[in-house]
Design a protein around this nucleic acid. Sequence first.
RNA 1: CGGGCCGUAGUAUACCGGUAGUACACCUGCUUUGGGAGCAGGUUGACCGAGUUCGAUUCUCGGCGGCCCGACCA
Length: 422
Amino acid sequence: MKHSSNSVRQSQLFTKTRKEAPKDEVSKNAQLLIRAGYVHKEMAGVYSYLPLGRRVLEHIEQIVREEMDAIGGQEVRMATLHPSEPWKQTGAWDSVDVVFKIVSRTEKEYTVGQSEEEIVTPIGQEYVTSYKDLPLAIYQIGQKYRDELRAKSGIMRGREFTMKDMYSFHETQEDFDKFYQVAKDAYLKVYERLGLVAKATEASGGAFTKKLSYEFMVLTDAGEDDILYCDKCPYCVNIEISTQKEGDACTRCVGGTLARATASEVGNIFDLGTKYTTDFNFTCKNREGQEVHPIMGCFGIGITRLMGVIVETFADAKGLVWPEAVAPFRVHLVELTSDSADVHSEAAEVYRELSEAGISVLWDDRDARAGEKFADSDLLGIPLRVVVSEKTLSAGKFECVHRASGRVEHKSISELLGHLTA
RNA sequence: CGGGCCGUAGUAUACCGGUAGUACACCUGCUUUGGGAGCAGGUUGACCGAGUUCGAUUCUCGGCGGCCCGACCA
């Protein structure tokens, strides 16, 4: 049997850790992700994701993908280089100031996707001709570009970022409303699976709609929004649209009091109405045989921002701390005394057995001292550290240290396998 | 976009109107090996442009870049 390609030997990993953060990075997420070699900064608000960072992003993406698939979303990959025409058709070319505008050498105008209504609406139009084709939900996970005046907070507010954006089409408002609730529940499930507590927060619909929208907020001082939330029930409202204040009684439940907090917006769901289907003259037949404009919804989740929020939420003084669900590896296998052939071959055996059991392992097989390895291990934040050394060899059990709690256990290989595959 | 702070080896920093020192990293060797080792030797640096000056990394101006506060964020 082959070793799972999911496991990696640290001696082969091209990234290295650093003791010090770049002096200009103040945000916790940027400092730790750069020190640990998860990301590389290209310019303000633009980061490359290196092997470890890419693995975390993929895990977040996969959870989002599963929940979107579960509510009937169909995944696509839309273009990121866009012609200017549809953007002019909807008015966004002139009215939305974060739209990048590119002029080619032949003076043709383009933009890059900062949202995809201008692309997805014509796609829907091509295939939807009847109410029988509805409802339809199309989503993708991909790069977005916004010409922000000021990038900030590390990976949490960039000019290029990864977003899951889903667009739904409906025959009736009732059908949209039903899907909106389904999507809201799916969103809450995504955050829960990521180990986060997100609040569905009533907020302004922006320029999309006069109706309320839901923003999904995770409480963190690294966020940019202020919210009021009830200490008893799920009610939560963005301070921008709230007529209440901290300490007021909750109007949605009995006995609840509103508290104020800073939060980061990690998702947003909108009712787009018929704005885009009207702009593109997208109609289909309803069951009475009339041509109607489908009602659209738009559902975003900031993937890279979520990664930043996870770092901000769980990291401690020693470094990153990843929840199981998104960690780049499940096990950090740390061998000590690399000049001991016994320790090394034992570590190799643990690596092989865990990998073959489908458990992703980062094996620190480098020729380095214990202190450096432990410090790196703490910084990298992999949930479970398994130490192999002369000490554990003679004890016949490996030292297992849980990164988040610091709890130490001693387990044999079979106990370890049982624990990890349970 | 307004305001503030800042640009010196790969990283973090120091000094200086006379071309730069330290730590870590990196390379060689020896010793070391359960919490970022020690010794010896070695490699590596002033964002760009203009001005002032005999001489600018240092002073002045402009540009570019970074961070922070605000505004902005359909």
